[in-house]
Design a protein around this nucleic acid. Structure first.
Lengths: 184, 184
DNA sequence: AAACGATGATTAGCCGCCTAACTACTTGGC
DNA sequence: GCCAAGTAGTTAGGCGGCTAATCATCGTTT
């Protein structure tokens, strides 16, 4: 998540003191929120750093994953609109990502035969090979990052994060709307 | 965190099945990792949506917060290098952010009198007023997002996220290095 | 006094996100 | 058959991140 963010978060004690001047400041909510942004950003930068070693970006990797279908199965061509919906970005963004993936030979576009407004984006053999090369290291990196947490702690983390994500969706603007997708 | 990310994460059962084809895939680590990215992204988008109502971006907001010093205290002029270090971005990025903040009259730059290589960035009165206008709503939004979690769950979340962030730092490339900063 | 190495900030160009507008195409009503 | 409305994808421009290069400045050495 390339986004500007503080490297060191304020201590809880500082938040308590700040709450004196700002009655709307809930110290524990603030602390949790900032820690979530920071951990999410660091997790993203970890994957970004790893992907750059393979000359790909997280966004392009996600597009390749969506086109590969369920892991180990048949590639699944999709339209830019479908990719955008599943990835939670705009169709304009997908155009840019597919442009560079096509330039590098990892995907190819073709018009739908029935409706020429629509494109189908296909994973190429080269794209498939690129994924197979990247995935083991990606999974190792994920596992390494989560190594300090026990199985129980991971389940707890997922449960708490899901609560927050659910609330973000319920709060509306800014959160990604519901859709069905499966890709790692 | 404007970054491309899946809207709906794969179910744990799908990860278990995928692990058959990819021995490096640790299902619980993968699930936790993806949930962290998604929740972090949604939290970021929540704040981004809120800030856009005030014609500011999260990055610029962070710069203003760093210049305001500890909440409620005296503004604290800083150099672009200090801002970059504390925010965990490059000096080039800070140049761009300060450019637009200066254009909008929220900050001003002046050369350091002793060393003219260095700039000092000051928060203006207008910038200070903008912060005071934004902060109550920002804190309310944070509190609303974290409302589904009890105090105990928030503490647990912070503890688990801190473990992950610590591990990211230990893993090196991609993670933000340690520095001292306090700003909300 | 001049040269050199280092530092701080900025600039240039790329990438990935956005919104808004545009182009190509499809569908349905008349 | 024509036209209006809507859809899909792309383009243009802005913003915020990056790297690498450039410019201005400082301190040290000769």
């Amino acid at each position: 998540m390339p986004l500007l963010m503080l490297k060191d978060l304020p201590r809880y004690e500082c938040l308590l003191e700040a709450a004196r001047s700002f009655p709307d400041l809930d110290p524990s909510a603030c602390e949790a929120f900032l820690n979530l942004l920071r951990a999410g950003d660091e997790a993203y930068r970890q994957s970004e750093s790893f992907f750059s070693e393979h000359n790909i970006s997280p966004g392009r990797f996600t597009v390749l994953m969506l086109l590969s279908g369920t892991l180990g199965r048949e590639p699944l061509p999709q339209t830019p609109a479908e990719l955008a919906e599943k990835a939670g970005v705009t169709r304009a963004t997908i155009t840019g990502l597919v442009d560079t993936l096509e330039r590098d030979g990892l995907v190819r576009r073709e018009h739908d035969s029935d409706d020429r407004r629509m494109m189908l984006v296909h994973l190429t053999q080269k794209g498939h090979a690129a994924l197979r090369e990247i995935l083991p290291g990606h999974f190792k990196r994920m596992a390494a990052l989560m190594a300090p947490l026990s199985e129980h702690e991971r389940k707890t983390l997922v449960r708490l994060l899901d609560k927050v994500a659910g609330q973000a969706s319920a709060m509306g603007p800014g959160a990604r709307s519901q859709s069905q997708a499966a890709a790692v």
